[in-house]
Nucleic acid binder design. Sequence first.
DNA 1: GGCGGGATCATCCAAACGATTGACCCGGGA
DNA 2: TCCCGGGTCAATCGTTTGGATGATCCCGCC
Lengths: 217, 217
Amino acid sequence: MKHIRILLVDDHPVVRAGLRAMLSDFEGVSVAAEAADGDTALKELKRLKALDEAVDVVLMDLQMGAGMDGVTATTRIRLLEEAPQVLILTTYDTDADILAAVEAGACGYMLKDAPPEQIRQAVQAAAAGQTALAPKIAALLMNRVANPAAALTPREIQLLELLATGLSNRAIAKETFISEATVKTHLVHIYEKLGVDNRTAAISVATQRRIIRAPGQ
Amino acid sequence: MKHIRILLVDDHPVVRAGLRAMLSDFEGVSVAAEAADGDTALKELKRLKALDEAVDVVLMDLQMGAGMDGVTATTRIRLLEEAPQVLILTTYDTDADILAAVEAGACGYMLKDAPPEQIRQAVQAAAAGQTALAPKIAALLMNRVANPAAALTPREIQLLELLATGLSNRAIAKETFISEATVKTHLVHIYEKLGVDNRTAAISVATQRRIIRAPGQ
DNA sequence: GGCGGGATCATCCAAACGATTGACCCGGGA
DNA sequence: TCCCGGGTCAATCGTTTGGATGATCCCGCC
């Protein structure tokens, strides 16, 4: 079996050290380089390629403190010539994260609480160009496909975002140039789709499902 | 200098491996054991003590997937005979987390994105019984002392957190075993301190100022 | 051409919320 | 000792929100 060369991308030194230690225990795998953010990751990929030591798999965290975020980085990486596979390894298991990652061209999605053995398998699957999903993630995707009712319209998402900033119905109405009555109608639909019955709960669920960004972020 | 014995508590195998690798590079420090949750941590502490290999410092994550959470675990640990120092090492840097950890008896609070050297220093400070705060955290606390007007009480932060989960006043009252009237009183104070006039705005501002974590996170 | 879904608006009513005022208890510091 | 701040509770009142119902318009699709 071909030797697998890996690039680690995570903003936490601790996590990088952990992955390096973990991966070094596996046969046929080596960590070629590390990066703390997306920009550095791209530079490293180019540098290694120039040295004829191209990377096979990128292990990517989605949540990056500063610099380019994981989804953007994944997109950019997959646009490269002879792009390496990108395997997402993150803490969060929300729908929006996963969908965004898949859209960006990731070939797998694992959670950081996975046991080493699962991570090893995922890396090897990724290197072979196969998809690698954590069991939790697979279940979540199934559930989503089975229940598309929860899809909010763009307009509803827009109002939800304004809602999360703390605006009243009246203020939202002014902001969007519609009547307060219409705002209420939209809110009712939003509540139904999210399975809640008030605005704060809507914000909580929507944030959790990554339908909107966290308030004030 | 005395040799420092450490217990790692984190639900992510990756993070534990990282800390182990990182700490093994330091002189005078060794990882005595690991635990994935609070229960296991307590058992390990007792086991090691029985072997006369008592732990000096517990490195504790606050966010534990299952089992006893970090704050509870910290409380329990600090209640032990000849309790080890507890150093919090987590991803979150919000007031609520920090206050809870300090109340629980933690002697320090570090963030996972800290460079290895900082973690080393923190561990040694902790072992010496000194407090160890990440620069970010220290800044946050300074800001808090400098501007006490905006300082919410622990109780207020607690209600704010419940608020952010989408609970009604009545539900919050039940949850905290106080009357709805008192909940309202607290909310009025919270609104004054945050400079807002409704609950969603309070959540937005509180999230922005890192007084609470983003809803549903 | 009809049908459905999204967006718009309106009215009515009950419940929840926010503002105000006033009060009590307790613990710690001046 | 007294005072103050935090936490607790209550009553009132106006405003906001949420639920229910119904209606119009427009666009894409069968």
